[in-house]
Design a protein around this nucleic acid. Structure first.
Lengths: 200, 200
DNA sequence: GTCTTAATCCTTACGATGTAAAGTTTGCAA
DNA sequence: TTGCAAACTTTACATCGTAAGGATTAAGAC
């Protein structure tokens, strides 16, 4: 932690931390490698000893984001009384996460990390929340003896709904204060549509 | 159209056109003012006589995108047998538009145009598809005598669902080939959830 | 304790970008 | 014809990502 030493010692972590701060403060365009280095008090080229390039640093930040999301997801889900409500609450929570971390979420879903080989740590972190949702969905469908939708389809639909609400709210296309509730209600409507639809 | 003249004559339109091409070809990061100027055969600073800055040019491109979307929306919607199916078909069509114009859609929804004063033309163009959907939704709710959800809420939910499916498909989180159908099925599920839910 | 080595960090340099400032060319109106 | 405004160019600067090579230091071997 002594700031005077030639070797920073915690540069990698410090950069990720500074990036998280700078991301939500100045937006994604305000985030530059040079700016980060400046903020941490290190030369422009120092970050390159910990990250091959800008994308790799951003991927590390995004990975951190997925880990935070997963923690929140698990915390919330455990409390719900029923699987139906757990699914809807998961959606609302997802929207809340998006609204709490606008630029981080945008980064997490950025297309520039699509290379699964290069950013394997990111993709591993990203798959955890997806797997949690898929599991919950499968248990719900089983409980309700529904043969349609498939677990994957159902999970994708609920996910897409919350993702859509969250990102639209982020862009000011939707009132942010009611967005989580909208996700809750919308999820319930879709779930009830599945329950009702198949009876006939 | 004579390329040698000092005055291009159609620079503004030519830039927007070139930007649309370059956008889907090289991605949003490959799109630079200088690159555009080069492609059109004009100096780096020429674009600044038609657009105050980069954002203004991009806003014009995005506006063009909303106009194209609106045209497609109207074409599709007229054919549907019922309001219920028109809503679902609208969702599938929206997803198809996203998949057909990935980078254009990303641009259209880019946060950098949130200033409603500066980009009023954009916001006007963007509100047309939204109004069309809202109208359809209101007619449907009226037809079904549903007091909940409200037209706005219902429209936002269907919109968010398709937006979510489309953007997730864009990012490779979802199979693009079945995404439009997923939007169709998901929309129907939600709609049926509204119809069924309120009866009880 | 000294030497070696590898990790960490710095300096310098290049090409690309957005855009500010000021000059040049051209079409059009008086 | 003259004059002016619009369209376009040239030049210049700050900032960015990053390539190449040099300086500093921590850690282990002897």
């Amino acid at each position: 932690m002594d700031k005077k030493s030639y070797h920073h010692g915690e540069l990698r972590a410090a950069l990720i931390h500074a990036a998280l701060d700078m991301l939500e403060q100045d937006g994604p365009d305000g985030l530059s490698l040079r700016g980060l280095a400046r903020a941490v008090g290190v030369s422009s080229m120092a970050p390159y000893h910990h990250f091959a390039d800008r994308a790799e640093l951003l991927a590390a930040v995004a990975t951190e984001g997925f880990e935070r999301l997963q923690i929140r997801k698990q915390d919330i889900q455990a409390i719900q009384p029923s699987l139906r409500e757990a699914l809807a609450a998961g959606g609302a929570n997802y929207v809340r996460f998006i609204l709490d971390n606008p630029n981080l979420y945008r980064l997490m879903r950025s297309k520039e990390f699509s290379d699964r080989h290069r950013f394997s740590a990111l993709h591993r972190a990203a798959s955890a929340p997806a797997a949690t949702l898929l599991d919950l969905m499968a248990r719900f469908l089983d409980e309700q003896s529904l043969s349609s939708p498939s677990p994957i389809e159902g999970a994708q639909l609920l996910w897409a709904l919350s993702h859509g609400i969250g990102t639209l709210a982020l862009e000011g296309q939707m009132r942010a204060d009611i967005a989580p509730d909208l996700a809750y209600q919308g999820s319930l409507a879709m779930i009830d549509g599945w329950i009702a639809g198949l009876k006939g």
